[in-house]
Design a protein around this nucleic acid. Sequence first.
DNA 1: CTGGGTCATACCCCGAAGGTATCAGCGGTG
DNA 2: CACCGCTGATACCTTCGGGGTATGACCCAG
Lengths: 290, 290
Amino acid sequence: MTQADTRELRYFIAVAEERHFARAAARLGIAQPPLTRTIQKLERGMGVRLLERDSRGVRLTEAGTVLLREGRVALERVGAATRRAQRAGRTPATLVLAVKPGGDGGLLTEILAAHAAEPDAPDVDIVCVGAGEQAAAVRDGRADVALLHRPDADLTGLDREDLLVESQVALLPPHHRLSGHARIRVADLEDDPLPRWPDTAGELSGAGIREAGRLMQLILVGRLIAVGPESVRRYAWDGVACVPVVDAAPTTLALAWPEDSRSRAVSAFARVATAVASRHRDATVHEPGP
Amino acid sequence: MTQADTRELRYFIAVAEERHFARAAARLGIAQPPLTRTIQKLERGMGVRLLERDSRGVRLTEAGTVLLREGRVALERVGAATRRAQRAGRTPATLVLAVKPGGDGGLLTEILAAHAAEPDAPDVDIVCVGAGEQAAAVRDGRADVALLHRPDADLTGLDREDLLVESQVALLPPHHRLSGHARIRVADLEDDPLPRWPDTAGELSGAGIREAGRLMQLILVGRLIAVGPESVRRYAWDGVACVPVVDAAPTTLALAWPEDSRSRAVSAFARVATAVASRHRDATVHEPGP
DNA sequence: CTGGGTCATACCCCGAAGGTATCAGCGGTG
DNA sequence: CACCGCTGATACCTTCGGGGTATGACCCAG
């Protein structure tokens, strides 16, 4: 025996993450002794020491570090496989699209309409996920395709089609020193006293915000500034200033799907989406907005 | 319960591939009834019908088709995770490189020497695999990196670094009508009566050849012609003609590794390999061969 | 109708996953 | 130093489910 099974992997990951058998057991909903035994059996089966234990806890060996990293993605693939199969079995056929609220570049309604007009197009289910989770949703099988922004999103394991290049705007509180400006530069924000979303590192206020309303709220009360693609304009609350950041690297709205799943439904959707996007590009070129 | 475990997946894949419970059971080394029960339990757990059975066999449902495809890669990931962890635990650290015999573009010895000269470089194990299997070896965790040729190899799930662009040569039997030519074109081979490797479709003689000696043998006796990168010249048997194909799309020798595993050892090896390759490129530019 | 093929069901056995109680090491602290 | 409190490991029991054999239900060909 050498191939770990999912139970052993789940158990090992729990211990490796908690670095503590009893806590891991609690998290798994089992008692500590069987957990200890399972890990021992896993180590024996693999012929490798995964954890260094002593009386005050657990450390990962080199092999354990690798198995934690690799095991996570392996388990994710197993989960994705079952979820995708489950969805494929549900009738009628449905395409699940993951989007971040407000992260559609203003194209979504148009894309959906165009797609629905196609002959025998499957229904499209929309799943709203937190910022930055669209790719994960596709990877773990909750969704078939995602609308997301490059290069913010991590696209490992995904294929993509670019739809739209968007310049960036800063969202500023009403009385911010820059909120009156017609345009600003990245450097202007550099030494701003307010933390900046989305690259607020660590546990500063607003680090893990994944909901637009909460973000707007924090900006409005002057606790945060944010930078995002142009299309967020239409979701900005009244009072929040939207100022173009002229020299920020533009962000690209893209459609992404699992790299190995070239299903007909996904291809068709991608084709429609790119068509809509290119129409949209032409339109903005010919009749620029106010 | 919704997450299939590896045993269920393995069993399902066997049945789906054999399209026959008894044969699948034999392949798995178990009896047919427990296999039936396991599949039933899997279907119940997932809430989806995977197989359509009747008294003369098994067909896949839509969901079953998806699970077969996705389940295969999921299982592969699980196997890769355990194998990589096992190797990470073996001391001393070893880097495993997958190559096809003769598929190293003549760089391998030089790369190995340069790598060995690096401070605290891990030992390099060389694994020879059949043609076109290098990528699979990396994916399933048997190897850490691979030398392979683009675009022949399927690189899904892998990152790469290009080393060398090679033009293509045709390997022809001694008395072939084109073997005297100094150079030929793709069109010249178009309607050749002999089957051509590696794109011989189906089960024609020599379709699945993965060993250079056997290939040379078949060419020498006039049963096959082959097209490959320039560097195969040095492995061609005496009598086999090597004729440049001037308008064939060049092939690129690349180093590939798993897209998510950015281990220090792999990065270091890649750096050395690209350095050697670029030295090699410069050398051939400055003093072209005879 | 019978025979040979399919997958499903019935029933039994045993291994292993899970639980409880307890042990064994180690590090603080009075 | 003794003791407590924390860690993971061990012993022992129960139970559940994976595996086996025998057989059934069904379909098709002759």
